[in-house]
Design a protein around this nucleic acid. Structure first.
Lengths: 214, 214
DNA sequence: TCGCGGTGTTTCACACTTGAAACAATATGA
DNA sequence: TCATATTGTTTCAAGTGTGAAACACCGCGA
């Protein structure tokens, strides 16, 4: 197929498939068919084949997929074979929790620096990561070879911080501030808005009987 | 309109509108039209009117919306005028960070109890919240009047924890474990999967020139 | 009283995603 | 050799969300 317009939904599913394959590999299985994979993990077999076909032909007709091989392929497609260095802006509780977040290490991301404007925090260590003055952001980014930024500051500062991030040449940003941010099209910006999720739960609790799954 | 099938996308937008109104109210404005709101916050005016019309007639023709009034209405619709008591299962770093998360207080959620299986943690206090043995979950839930649960345990335990949560009679669950969970239709389950978001950034960085906004 | 501005509502076209179905192609094993 | 299993690919229908357009209705101020 080799479509060049890959939906983010597709790559999200690749993440899921990768986890499923890891589980199967852990059990010692060698091959799996899209049908078995779908039945086991409540997925859709046609979708699995379509998603994978976007990136090449990884299966063997009549057999299925070699689990080890497919794991490597998906790992490569998702870029998980590359190392990334992360800056977290905002050394509050969220920033500190994220510094320790196991998911970063798991996905080959390394928290290389924290940034804050609070003089009491600047210079300190959080989980062995140094807190720098946000004024020195661009300089440290260059020196440390940072290519990913995480926004963990209050909503009112988020847009300004994002602009500094972009000015420093970073293209991939994860935003935890509860506000939509504006950025150019060549910047990959993912916003994780916990407040919206909470208010969605609140809405559900306020009107029993109706539902919606995310 | 009074449609009874409200999309979650609609309620998510209500959350956004509420924030915008808060900002406007803070500036001392009294009324706002859907057009001004849309232009100011990069929204779509037709969508705003449609979303609001799902729940009643809040505007005044020829005038727009009274900001204070609309804030109250949306607050009521989203159930933010009700207090909720939250249990966090998993007293690790993520659980601890969430216990302190300001967004909970902001949305009228109160973290009432933490749960863990680690004897070293049970009985301790984290930000003034007691850590209980997860074995006592149902008992404490009843005693403390808890109606919302947050899953902050490793992925392999998440499904089991969810079942205990459901058995305890809780209907609203937020899951931070990086795995899709299965639950009945009458349970509101929101999964925040940071790993998928990270892998999405990784994919983007691995293939420069292509993009996608979440 | 009249015109302007803005809501409430309907309608339509477009895009995207999903899931099913069908089928050719092709390894494997009997 | 041949049946079977399963991929890779195309096609189609259904559902959902978006955004524009049109317009009736109505409050306000001139």
């Amino acid at each position: 197929m080799k479509a060049d317009k890959i939906s983010e939904l597709t790559t999200n599913r690749l993440s899921i498939y990768l986890r499923c394959l890891n589980e199967l590999a852990h059990e010692g299985r060698k091959t799996v068919s899209s049908d078995r994979l779908a039945k086991r993990f409540h997925l859709n077999s046609a979708q699995i084949r379509k998603d994978l076909a976007c990136f090449g032909e990884f299966g063997v007709r009549g057999v299925g997929y070699y689990i080890e091989d497919l794991r490597e392929q998906i790992t490569r497609i998702l870029g998980l074979d590359h190392h990334h260095r992360v800056a977290i802006i905002g050394a509050g509780r969220l920033g500190a929790a994220l510094t320790d977040y196991y998911g970063f290490r798991q996905t080959n991301f390394e928290v290389a620096a924290l940034f804050d404007a609070d003089p009491d925090k600047i210079g300190s260590l959080i989980s062995d990561v140094r807190v720098f003055d946000v004024k020195d952001f661009a300089k440290i980014v260059k020196k440390e070879g940072i290519d990913v930024a995480v926004i963990a500051v209050p909503a009112e500062y988020a847009q300004k911080v994002l602009e500094e991030i972009v000015d420093a040449g970073i293209k991939a940003v994860m935003n935890f501030a509860p506000t939509p941010l504006l950025a150019d099209d060549d910047i990959k910006l993912k916003t994780i808005d916990l407040t919206i999720s909470l208010e969605s739960l609140s809405y559900f609790l306020a009107r029993p009987g109706k539902n919606g799954r995310e």
